[in-house]
């Protein structure tokens, strides 16, 4: 998928209300497809990508998964999250009143603008949330250059 910078509302441009609407539609249908499994690819976790001065942080909701079931791989400028969520308990005598939780495998790949230091990546899994910290390459960091004005 292509990454588009997250836009805050209130941006002033004659086209911004339309762009806003487009963004909301895309987000709505993206969410619907994710929530109702229209895509027929199992489930797909919700992910945030944040950028700060020195690093990118990828945050994914993976409730009910075990650390060893989550696979994080990096190739070039991309990060791939992969895993499979299995039923914890399965018994024939039990009756289900409702099943809203999704199971199965997922795979998502993200392109990180400007890349990252592949050897400095760290990942933590806590309370069902995966946090991958991707330190920026030195050349991708903002630099201050003094320009002399004569």
């Amino acid at each position: 998928m292509a990454l588009v910078r997250w836009k805050n509302h209130g941006e002033m441009s004659p086209w911004s209300p339309l762009r806003d609407l487009e963004g909301q539609f895309n987000r709505l249908f993206g969410e619907l497809a994710r929530d109702y499994d229209l895509s027929d690819r199992g489930w797909s976790p919700a992910v945030d990508l944040k950028e700060s001065e020195h690093e990118y942080t990828l945050v994914a909701d993976l409730p009910g998964m075990k650390r060893e079931e989550i696979d994080v791989t990096v190739v070039d400028n991309t990060v791939t999250l992969k895993g499979e969520r299995k039923h914890e308990t399965e018994s024939k005598e039990d009756g289900y009143h409702c099943i809203e939780r999704r199971y199965g495998s997922f795979e998502r790949t993200f392109e990180i603008p400007g890349g990252f230091k592949a050897d400095k990546i760290s990942a933590h899994f806590d309370n069902g949330v995966l946090r991958v910290t991707l330190p920026k390459r030195d050349e991708a960091k903002p630099k201050q250059i003094d320009v002399k004005v004569n």
């Binding site: 909701d61 009910g64 009756g95 009143h97 409702c98 809203e100 939780r101 999704r102 069902g128």
Partner: peptide, 22 residues
């Protein structure tokens, strides 16, 4: 939160997905 509600002979179990909640 998404939940599964499961009933067995003497119990009812509710499993709720609450990622990020301590």
């Amino acid at each position: 939160p998404r939940v599964n509600v499961i009933e067995n002979v003497d119990q009812v179990l509710i499993e709720a997905e609450l990622p990020g909640v301590d």
